[in-house]
Simulated assay, not measured.
Amino acid sequence: MSAESIFNQKLQPYIRYADLLHFQQWITPPRIITDYMLLYVQNGSFRLRVEGEQYEVKQGQFIFVQPGIVHQMESQSQLTLLSLHLELFPYLAENRPEMIVPVDQGYNPDAVAMQPNLKAYADIAIPYVLKLPRHEWMLESLQQAIAHWNRKNALDFLQAQVHAAEMVLEILKEYTTDITTEHNRSTSLNWVPAYMQYRLAEPLTVEEMAHKALMSRSYFSMHFRAQFGMAPHQYLLKLRLDYATELLRSTALPLQDIADSCGFSSVHHFSKMYKLRFGCPPSQIRRKS
Rank of each mutant, 00 (worst) to 15 (best):
E87P: 02
V65T: 15
V57A: 01
P90A: 03
Y219I: 12
M209H: 05
Q78N: 11
L81G: 08
S5G: 02
M114Y: 11
K152G: 01
S289I: 10
D19M: 08
A201H: 14
L139W: 01
P282G: 05
L247V: 11
F278Q: 04
N108H: 00
E98H: 15
N108E: 00
A93T: 13
L132S: 02
A120T: 12
Y121F: 15
Y40A: 08
K272G: 01
F224C: 01
K173I: 10
L142D: 01
T80Q: 06
G44R: 08
F7I: 10
T177N: 01
Q72E: 07
L84K: 04
L139K: 06
P102Y: 02
I258R: 10
V57L: 05
V65C: 12
M99C: 14
V103W: 06
W191G: 10
L38R: 00
D104M: 04
D110H: 09
L130R: 04
A122D: 02
S250K: 15
E140C: 00
A194Q: 14
P116D: 00
K212A: 14
A165T: 12
N153D: 00
F270T: 11
V70A: 05
A145C: 01
Q143T: 07
H211A: 15
V103T: 03
Q42I: 10
Q42A: 09
I15H: 05
L172G: 03
D257L: 14
P29L: 05
R134M: 08
P97C: 03
V267L: 01
P102V: 01
R151T: 13
Y219C: 03
A194D: 11
Q76P: 04
E140W: 03
S216R: 11
F23S: 12
Y17E: 04
L247P: 15
Q54P: 14
E202V: 15
Y107T: 07
R49F: 12
Q78D: 07
R286F: 09
V70Q: 02
M167F: 06
S77N: 10
A164I: 08
S77W: 08
E182C: 04
V65P: 09
A154D: 04
Q66E: 15
L81V: 15
R277D: 02
I100P: 04
M1N: 12
